[in-house]
């Protein structure tokens, strides 16, 4: 077992974990933050995307111990003081989701995208979410949702 200490959505957690425990399982099973999802086992689909020290990362590809000392934001930590993040608002307004399973990862990925490209072109958006799969929407409303958030910022 190894000790890991991480700050998740502003709250610090210290735990003893198996070295092989994936960050996504640490978040979901030990911290009960089940908003972060698992959609594959080869790091392709992006359903597990969270922010690690402000950058998007696939939490199925990181061991919990590797995240030691870092600051993590999950979908549960995005809304502040009861107010939705502009991206959450955009996904709601623009019908950017159907089954909702890819949505948390898609939104967290888009947070990073907009940090890097505050006014992205449509091409930059489509390329920027290349690591996040959605099987329901055909992506067009997701693009609209990200544009909505970009315009709002």
């Amino acid at each position: 077992m190894a000790q890991v200490s991480v700050t998740v959505n502003g709250k610090t957690h210290t735990a003893n974990v198996e070295p092989r425990l994936l960050l996504v399982h640490f978040l979901r099973e030990q911290l009960n933050l089940t908003g972060t999802h698992i959609g594959c086992d080869t790091s392709q689909c992006g359903a597990c995307t969270v922010l690690v020290d402000g950058r998007s990362a696939k939490s199925c590809t990181i061991f919990a111990v590797q995240a030691d000392g870092s600051e993590i934001t999950t979908i549960e930590g995005l809304a502040r003081d009861g107010r939705l993040h502009p991206l959450q608002e955009g996904f709601w307004e623009e019908h950017g989701l159907q089954c909702g399973y890819c949505t948390p990862g898609m939104i967290m990925s888009a947070v990073d995208l907009l940090n890097e490209h505050p006014s992205p072109t449509e091409r930059e958006i489509r390329d920027g979410i290349d690591g996040n799969f959605c099987r329901c929407t055909g992506y067009e409303h997701i693009v609209n949702a990200i544009q909505y958030a970009a315009n709002k910022r």
């Binding site: 933050l33 089940t34 908003g35 972060t36 999802h37 999950t74 979908i75 549960e76 995005l78 809304a79 939705l84 959450q88 996904f91 709601w92 989701l97 909702g100 399973y101 949505t103 948390p104 939104i107």
Partner: peptide, 11 residues
Amino acid sequence: DPRLIQGRATY
């Protein structure tokens, strides 16, 4: 959508 965009849905 409110539950789905905030990670509050239960799969």
